Computed example of a mutant assay.
Amino acid sequence: MTRVWNTDYGNMYDVEFRIIEKLSREEKHMHHKEKLEVPPFTGKLDEANGRYAIVFTKPGCNKCRQTIRILSRSIMVNHYQADKTAIEYFKRMGIRSMPVVFIFDHYDIIDEWCDLRVDKIKQYTEE
């Protein structure tokens, strides 16, 4: 049975409503992404061949330790313990698990993810 929602946009079917809600969340995520201030890279870009990772962790997080351990085999990794402000910011972005990983090529973010993502880690350790 299809549910009809009465919204500001008018009456909508359930599928339409879910699509608009998803797009709204993505737009909100993109808006917050623009305001992200990532700490500066403390290594030497020459040693990193221009590519490096910044990882935000929380204390006692095994997934965080594993991510850092495996990524650091192939690229430079700076990691920071997320404070309450950073955690609140990530929650507003829709991120619910740690670590939060940003991959840079020189000064441009080329990839980002959260949680232990073995597929993403392999992408950067097999190059």
Rank of each mutant, 00 (worst) to 15 (best):
L71P: 02
N6Q: 15
D83H: 04
D108I: 14
Y9F: 13
I95R: 00
K35I: 08
T42D: 03
A48S: 12
G43K: 00
K63A: 15
F104S: 01
G94Y: 05
V100K: 01
Y124D: 07
D8W: 10
G43I: 01
I95T: 03
K63Q: 07
Q66G: 04
L116A: 01
T67W: 05
T7L: 14
A53K: 02
M30E: 11
E126C: 06
V38D: 00
E21F: 08
T57F: 03
K28L: 15
W113T: 10
K44I: 06
T57Q: 10
Y13V: 04
D8R: 14
A82P: 01
D14I: 07
Y52S: 02
S74H: 13
D115G: 04
H31K: 15
S72C: 04
K58E: 15
T85N: 11
I70S: 05
Q66D: 13
I95P: 00
D108W: 07
E26R: 14
G60V: 03
A48I: 04
D105Q: 15
V77L: 02
R65F: 04
D108E: 15
S24H: 13
Y89I: 06
F56M: 01
F90I: 00
S24W: 07
E21D: 08
H79Q: 12
V77T: 02
T7V: 09
Y9D: 15
V38C: 01
I103Y: 04
E34G: 09
I121H: 02
N78G: 01
Y52W: 14
D105V: 10
N6K: 15
V100T: 00
I68L: 03
T85C: 09
I75P: 05
Q81I: 13
I70N: 06
S24Y: 07
T85H: 13
K44H: 07
W5K: 06
I19F: 05
R117H: 05
S74T: 12
N6G: 11
